[in-house]
Design a protein around this nucleic acid. Sequence first.
DNA 1: TATTGTTATACTCTATAACTATA
DNA 2: TATAGTTATAGAGTATAACAATA
Lengths: 137, 137
Amino acid sequence: MVSSAFRRVATSSVEDLPGGPRGYLVLVAVASGEPPSQLALARQVNLDRTVMTYLLDDLEARQLITRRPDPRDRRARQVLITEEGRAHLERTQQSLSIAEARLLADLDEHDARQLRLLLTRVAQTAQREALTPEADC
Amino acid sequence: MVSSAFRRVATSSVEDLPGGPRGYLVLVAVASGEPPSQLALARQVNLDRTVMTYLLDDLEARQLITRRPDPRDRRARQVLITEEGRAHLERTQQSLSIAEARLLADLDEHDARQLRLLLTRVAQTAQREALTPEADC
DNA sequence: TATTGTTATACTCTATAACTATA
DNA sequence: TATAGTTATAGAGTATAACAATA
């Protein structure tokens, strides 16, 4: 229930972004560090490179990102965030914080910290499990 | 991350069930109490009645449920779980418990209880929010 | 020959509407 | 006329494979 509630709340925060949650993850990935290639992005966000093409087409049409050939490897393209993209990203992140706060409204500061701590520990377990998904069942 | 890890782990537990997670929810709903109509089931699991038809077709083909006309209203059909369906459901539930335990492996009994408690409180908040989804900024 | 990105095709899922049989 | 269930159709989303450019 918590998971689906979070999804619902978060989805509404990113729904005016091309690609929804995916568009958001891509913007986050592009916003920091070296401009990644499309393939690197696809792996980072766990998307097929063909749908990454469509997604970037949409983001570029809305002028949130731009593409340019990588001077070191002209097969690849560097993906860069625009001013508009960065502004849009910040608005989305604010909206997400508000949504999260509303979800945790009934927890005081101590309990909220406790929950984040426990979830972080579970997340670490989950990440280790993710390395050996075949072990399932 | 926890949410998607849980989804992945849970999905693997129900993947041999027609309809996957949905098939599981339907089996759970059918397993207890009065045999529900297809429409009641659809509402309970939050599915369209047309896809419920397909889903029940698949579950019936695998002999996990049966349908029979409701004697009180011959437009409606009662959905019943079979012996095989009940056995399959129990196996799935065991698999889900094991999956959950693996996800919480790094938490001792006290921490696990604490996490369930906090999540329950958040779930209650979420349920209240669900009643007024239009309030989503 | 392998890799990045693009495009085309097919396939699955979902949503909508039309249909039947009952009420 | 309205409702339970079914079926048909169309649309969106996704995956696969083929292609061009470059390494």
